[in-house]
């Protein structure tokens, strides 16, 4: 296999190197890529969409359709991870043994064969491999998480003016919940964001995006033509584009947030949602 791999690699590399000889020089301002389409984007973005960040404008408006499917890709990755890994209760072979920890004293109780503890304030359910979370990490993260989340929302909201946008903000937002899961444990994170909520949020995020597009369709414009929203938002069509971009960025953010958490939950617990990383 190694030799085959080497041969394939060398052949492909040789082809690519051969072809690269005909490229325009690197960072050449006169290359076709820099002179054909991009000048239009650079020069017209502001007047057509009133968004200074050209990347955001192109991403969410000129090529908004790509981005919608990009979000869908993420969504489907989440669904696939869930579909592949999540072990439903029916599939579990035997009634599980449950462990409960007395919160104040740290005494652990083991209940066999699916018996449940009556709901009680003093006990929390834990898993067989439970380890007490580290105090420093826990406290440190507790303080940091709100700021991480705030920063994430800032990134989403300021996608027009600075780098960032729905996707990056969504990832950071998701990361903050993952951070919670890492610093405490998975159960805590799942309690705060239940699986059902995540599953629905995922879909809702993409739905905001696609639904905005479909709304444009209903307003007698082409799909994703945000200028159709002008009438709804009571602004001029160009500002409507800008707002449309913000709306879809929010959708992207929600979808990505939920999906990242979803994937993490499934991967780190191999679908059992008991004990994560």
């Amino acid at each position: 296999m190694k030799i085959i791999g080497l041969i394939i690699t060398v052949v492909t590399g040789a082809l690519l190197i051969y072809a690269a000889a005909d490229f325009p020089a690197w960072s050449d301002p006169a290359s076709p890529a820099s002179t054909y389409l991009s000048p239009h984007f650079i020069e017209k973005t502001m007047e057509e969409t009133s968004v200074p960040n050209i990347v955001t404008a192109v991403l969410a408006d000129y090529r908004g359709f790509d981005t919608m499917f990009e979000t869908t890709v993420i969504f489907s990755a989440g669904v696939v991870c869930f579909f592949l890994l999540r072990i439903s209760r029916r599939e579990e072979e035997e009634p599980e043994t449950r462990y409960y920890r007395h919160v104040l004293t740290g005494v652990t109780i083991q209940l066999k064969e699916g018996y449940k503890m009556p709901p009680s304030a003093d006990f929390e359910r834990i898993d067989a491999v439970w380890t007490p979370p580290d105090l420093i990490i826990k406290t440190g993260c507790r303080i940091l998480i709100p700021f991480v989340q705030l920063f994430a929302l800032y990134v989403i909201a300021h996608g027009h003016h600075s780098p960032g946008g729905g996707f990056q903000g969504g990832v950071i937002l998701g990361a903050s919940v993952i951070l919670l899961a890492i610093s405490h444990d998975l159960r805590t994170a799942v309690r705060r964001m239940s699986e059902k909520l995540i599953g629905i949020l995922c879909a809702v995020g993409v739905f905001i995006y696609a639904g905005t597009g479909a709304l444009c369709l209903l307003l007698k414009q082409n799909f994703l033509d945000y200028s159709a929203l002008a009438g709804v938002l009571h602004v001029d069509p160009i500002t409507a584009r800008s707002h449309g971009i913000l709306i879809v960025e929010i959708g992207v953010g929600i979808a990505v947030l939920a999906t990242m958490i979803w994937i993490y939950n499934n991967i780190s617990s191999a679908g059992r949602y008991r004990q994560g990383l």
Binding site: I42, T45, M46, V51, P52, N53, I54, V55, H160, H161, S162, P163
Partner: peptide, 8 residues
Amino acid sequence: IPILEHGH
């Protein structure tokens, strides 16, 4: 970088 200066 492709972010317009003096955007607003």
